[in-house]
Nucleic acid binder design. Structure first.
Ligand SMILES: [Zn+2]
Ligand SMILES: [Zn+2]
Ligand SMILES: [Zn+2]
Ligand SMILES: [Zn+2]
Lengths: 138, 138
DNA sequence: TCTTTAACGCAACTCGGTTGCAAATATAAA
DNA sequence: TTTATATTTGCAACCGAGTTGCGTTAAAGA
C-alpha cells in the first residue's frame, strides 16, 4: 500500500485509479489546480463531473483547500496543516501572479492579527497578494 | 444640474434616468450591490444587460470598485477615494458577514505592508475579513 | 463469494454573465 | 432648433463553469 493509498484511506476515501492520480497531482504541484487543468493534465479521459465530485470530496475531507483565482474559477491547493473533515486550519497568504495567473500558497507569510472596526466582529481573515511569481520575473 | 448629473458628466458618462438611479443606489448603500440586487431594488424594469454594462462603465470610469463576495458573484461598492478612469486607488479592507452575506468596505482598516517571500514580487495586497456585521450581532 | 456503499459516466440542466445588432436617446455642432 | 454623432438601451441568442439525476461500475468489508 503506497502513501497515496494510505492518505485516501485515512480520509475515508476509496483508492480508485483516478483519485490516486488526482491526489498525486496536488502533491506534485507547487501551486494550485482548477478542474479544467486537472482534466488537461490527465488527458481528457475522465468526465468533468467525476473531477468536480472528487475535488469536492477532497476538500470536505481536508486534503485540499480553495485558493483565490484571478478569474474567479474554483481553484485548489494541497493542505499541509492539520486539516481534516472536521475543520480546515490555515493561516497563510496566497499569491496570484499577474503574468501566469497561477495561485501559490505562501506558507512563510502568516495572516497578521487585525483589530475589529466599529461593531464588526472578525472571525477570520484572508490575505491575497498579487504581483510577479519567481518564474515570471525576467 | 444635480450632483449625480455632475458626477456622471465628470466621468464621461451620459445622465440617463437609469444611470442616475444606479449611481444614487451606490451612494445610498452602506455596503455593496450585485447586478441582481440592483435589478430587484429598481423593480425589474431594466434589462439585465443594461445593468451589467452600466456596472462595467461605472467601474471603468472609477465610480465603483469590485468587492469580494461570499458566493463569488460580481459585487460592487462606491469609490470614496481618488479613483478615475486611469486607476483605482484603494487601501481598505473588506468585510463579509457570515450571516447576511453582505460585503462592507472597512475604510478604517488599512492593508498592512507585507514583506515579499522567496522570489515573489508583491505589487498589491487584498485583505478580506469574515465574521458578523453590526446588524447581525444579537 | 456476497452485500453494501462509494465512485463513475452520461445527459440534461442551471445560472451569472456576455455578444451582436438594431432601435432609442443624450450630446454637441451647425 | 435642427442635424449629425456617439452613447445607451433592449431583445434574443449565446457561453461556460459548475450542478443534478440516475443508472452502472467497482471498491471494501463481512
Ligand atoms: Zn486545509
Ligand atoms: Zn493555501
Ligand atoms: Zn475605486
Ligand atoms: Zn471597498
Amino acid at each position: 500500500m503506497t502513501d497515496l493509498d494510505l492518505v485516501l484511506k485515512e480520509h475515508g476515501l476509496r483508492k480508485t485509479t483516478f483519485r490516486k492520480e488526482l491526489l498525486s497531482l496536488f502533491y506534485d504541484s507547487n501551486s494550485s489546480l482548477t478542474a479544467e487543468e486537472v482534466k488537461n493534465i490527465l488527458g481528457h479521459t475522465t468526465d468533468k463531473v467525476t473531477i468536480y465530485r472528487a475535488l469536492d470530496a477532497f476538500e470536505k475531507t481536508g486534503l485540499i483547500h480553495r485558493v483565490p483565482d484571478k478569474s474567479n474559477l474554483t481553484r485548489y491547493a494541497i493542505c499541509h496543516s492539520e486539516c481534516s473533515s472536521i475543520k480546515h486550519v490555515h493561516n497563510h497568504a496566497h499569491f496570484i501572479c499577474n503574468s501566469c495567473n497561477e495561485t501559490f500558497c505562501i506558507n512563510d507569510i502568516k495572516i497578521p492579527h487585525i483589530e475589529g472596526a466599529k461593531g464588526f466582529l472578525i472571525k477570520n481573515a484572508k490575505l491575497t497578494l498579487e504581483g510577479d511569481c519567481p518564474q515570471c520575473q525576467s
